[in-house]
Simulated scan of single mutants.
Amino acid sequence: MQKNTAQRSSGLARGKQRKLGDGLGISETARKSNSQRRKRRVNPADPQGNKKLDEILKDPKKLDGKTPDQVRKELGQTPGWKEEGLGKGSHKGKGWVLREYSPQGNPTGRMVRWHPGGGHHGPNPYWRVTSPTGGKSPNIPAGKP
């Protein structure tokens, strides 16, 4: 049976052993990087950011019961973000998507999406918020336009 040790492959002299994982944990640098990712991302196109949009990304439940028009009015124009329709499925072109783009024109992964309902999630409209740091929110009930 093999022991949970590393010898020659780790560069240790013969006879000296250490448990695998000793010193192999997340480094301080990696820990800092992970915590820095959790901070608000600054889009160079909009360094001041939109506080209401940041609040929605942190707490998607703030969208509960709202329509896309209500959210559009609350957020106003936000540099670096574009309004689009849904891109796939039977509702392609319908719905409402607010997606962030980098100054180079690439999607950043942050998005607020309203789906009109129908399909495998049921007949009612819903919101979904996505971000690299927060992942995908659950479906949040939306108001009908």
Rank of each mutant, 00 (worst) to 15 (best):
G135V: 05
L75R: 11
Q17S: 09
L57K: 02
V97F: 09
S90M: 13
S9Y: 05
G85F: 06
G11L: 06
K16R: 06
T67H: 06
T67R: 08
L98G: 04
P145I: 00
K51H: 13
G15N: 08
K73Y: 00
L57E: 04
R37K: 14
K19Q: 15
P138H: 03
L57H: 07
Q104H: 13
E84K: 15
A6N: 10
Q104W: 06
K58F: 09
G15W: 08
R41W: 06
V42Q: 09
L20F: 02
G105Y: 06
K3D: 09
R14H: 13
L86Y: 06
K39Q: 00
S10A: 15
A30E: 15
D46I: 01
G119H: 01
Q17F: 14
N50R: 09
P141C: 03
G109I: 07
E55Q: 15
V129W: 01
G89R: 12
G122D: 03
V112D: 01
Q48A: 15
Q48T: 05
T5N: 11
K144I: 05
P60T: 02
T67Q: 11
G117F: 04
P145W: 02
R99C: 05
S10W: 07
S33G: 04
K51C: 03
P123V: 11
R14I: 12
N34R: 12
R18Y: 00
I56V: 15
S131Q: 03
R37W: 00
R99G: 07
N43A: 10
V71H: 00
K73G: 01
T29C: 00
H115Q: 06
Q104A: 15
P103R: 12
S90N: 12
I140K: 02
P107I: 04
G95E: 14
P123N: 13
G89H: 12
H121F: 09
Q48K: 15
G143A: 11
R37M: 05
R18L: 05
G135L: 04
H91N: 14
T78M: 07
T5D: 08
S33A: 12
K62N: 04
D69C: 00
W81N: 07
R8E: 08
P47M: 08
A13Q: 11
N124E: 14
G122K: 07
Q17N: 10
A13V: 05
G21C: 11
G93R: 15
E84M: 13
N4V: 10
S35P: 00
G49F: 07
R110C: 06
